[in-house]
Design a protein around this nucleic acid. Structure first.
Length: 161
DNA sequence: GCCAACGTTGGC
DNA sequence: GCCAACGTTGGC
């Protein structure tokens, strides 16, 4: 089963905020990048593993593990003129932005960028690429296994389904 | 289809 | 707050 890394600003939705949500699940609203949207729309399936990454904060890095809880459906914020994610070119008849639901699995220790970069096993991770800004990136099975098993010691999750 | 201008992301 | 890197827009 595919695995993903998803960035969230902890001031917006942190791993703790996710854990506190009803059903410990949130719609992944606000994505306004076509590549990231296409991953959600075309590739993400219920049960996929997610590395929950904190960005735009003092200590960017992996902060927890989550899972995809619902396949893609329209992002309501695109229709709301009061939302900062409002898109005047979208309409309920012709939605432009969709998102999946993401559900809490567990908190982890914070695995920061310098630590991620220090491991040759992770050298090809998209999130570590120079200038990368994509908020959703695929994670290779061996990368998942290394991070979850080696770095986090979550051996029960290292072979994700 | 090109490409300059602009806006955004995100680490530092 | 700075700035490199990238994506999007829109004139041509």
């Amino acid at each position: 089963m595919p695995c993903w890394l998803m960035k969230s600003e902890p001031d917006d939705v942190s791993i703790d905020a996710l854990a506190a949500c009803p059903g410990q699940s949130v719609p992944w609203y606000g994505v306004r990048n076509y590549q990231a949207r296409n991953f959600m729309r075309d590739a993400m399936r219920v049960g996929d593993g997610v590395l929950f990454y904190h960005s735009g904060c003092a200590e960017p890095g992996i902060a927890g593990i989550a899972r995809v809880a619902a396949t893609a459906y329209p992002d309501a914020t695109q229709f709301d003129p009061a939302s900062k994610y409002f898109d005047p070119k979208a309409s309920p008849d012709n939605p432009r932005w969709v998102h999946v639901d993401v559900q809490f699995v567990r908190r982890t220790r914070l695995v920061g960028l310098p630590e991620l970069r220090s491991h040759p096993e992770l050298a090809n991770m998209r999130v570590l690429a120079r200038g990368n800004r994509l908020s959703i990136t695929p994670v290779a099975a061996d990368e998942w296994r290394f991070i979850v098993g080696q770095l986090l010691g979550a051996t029960d999750l290292q072979d994700w389904k």
